[in-house]
Simulated assay, not measured.
Amino acid sequence: MNNKNLSLSGRKVLVVDDEEEILVITRLMLELHGAEVITSLTAAEGLEQVQTQRLDLIISDISMPHMDGYQFIQAVRNLPAHKGKDTPALAVTAFSRSQDRTRALNAGFQAHLSKPVSLQVLIQTILVWVL
């Protein structure tokens, strides 16, 4: 894998997941490729970040307490454009059936990746949406 071709340098990515270990691992993987990473343990906190940061991409889990990933992305899509409405978003989730993928895309995600996702697949998918 050629790291030069997979650079996320200058890209700001929000990762939302209620599992701290996932946030740490994902942050490290993305930072190794040059991304600036913001993490949120809750969808509500993630929604605040979307509105206050100029993000290039959102990566969100689906299964989270209080507000799940579907509710989170629908809230993002209901924001004004200048507050992050059109920010590309990837669902990274243990829900891996075809109907889960369809539901994620219909909710407003641009892509659906099943956990565990390989670093190469994650980076390549991100690059599709940020280049």
Rank of each mutant, 00 (worst) to 15 (best):
N2K: 13
K4R: 14
L6C: 01
L6M: 14
L8C: 09
L8I: 04
L8M: 08
R11I: 07
K12Q: 13
V13W: 05
E21N: 07
I22C: 12
R27D: 08
L28H: 14
M29I: 15
M29D: 03
M29P: 04
L32Q: 14
A35Q: 09
A35L: 02
V37D: 03
T39A: 12
S40A: 15
S40C: 14
S40T: 05
S40V: 05
L41H: 00
E45N: 12
E45H: 11
V50R: 13
Q51G: 14
D56K: 07
D56Y: 09
S60R: 03
S60M: 09
S63G: 00
P65N: 02
P65G: 02
M67A: 05
Q71H: 03
F72C: 03
I73G: 06
R77N: 09
N78C: 06
L90N: 01
L90V: 13
V92R: 09
A94W: 14
S96D: 15
R97V: 06
Q99Y: 15
D100W: 13
R101T: 10
A104N: 03
L105V: 11
Q110H: 04
A111M: 12
H112W: 10
S114Y: 12
S118Q: 06
S118C: 00
L119G: 10
Q120A: 04
Q120D: 07
Q124H: 08
L127R: 05
L127F: 02
V128L: 13
W129A: 08
